[in-house]
Design a protein around this nucleic acid. Structure first.
Lengths: 75, 75
DNA sequence: TTGTAGACTAACGTCGACA
DNA sequence: CTGTCGACGTTAGTCTACA
């Protein structure tokens, strides 16, 4: 499947749980809205720094975020 | 400090715990030795894919690896 | 064994615009 | 509100080589 796809799924799901749209999340993370779009569709991979930024605004720890990615990815 | 520095410290420490040199770790991860060197000194950041590759050969889950980075980073 | 350097390709991440 | 496109600058990651 590719770990980017798993990441995209987790990101999209968690964002919606918090009632945020892509634009709002992007603003809070100081990232570009179009890049959030690419990440959610598994077209791009986040760097370590981006993982930390996203986790913070998704109100979870980076390790929790990665844990969910692992679970979706199936290792 | 920067999250790359924290990552580099964790990577270096864990690698030595396992008695691996940079070259051996790089080979197992299918990464370049010089890039491992850059990562350990906090000069470069890993992507999500690289985090997963490294974690596997460091015999820990990606989320455990990131957890240690968080602890060193201090959030 | 590790750090460093230079040159290179691919991908990250930004930005403006439009359906 | 989201996907997509094109253009762009920066950085991840490779490779060869030398101290």
């Amino acid at each position: 499947m590719g770990v980017e796809k798993a990441f995209g799924f987790v990101l999209s799901t968690r964002r919606k749980e918090l009632g945020l749209n892509q634009e709002e999340l992007a603003f809070r993370c100081k990232l570009d809205r179009t890049f959030i779009s690419l990440l959610e569709r598994g077209k791009r991979q986040p760097s370590l720094d981006t993982i930390f930024k996203l986790a913070k605004e998704l109100q979870m720890s980076p390790s929790e975020l990665i844990k969910e990615v692992e679970d979706v990815f199936g290792n």
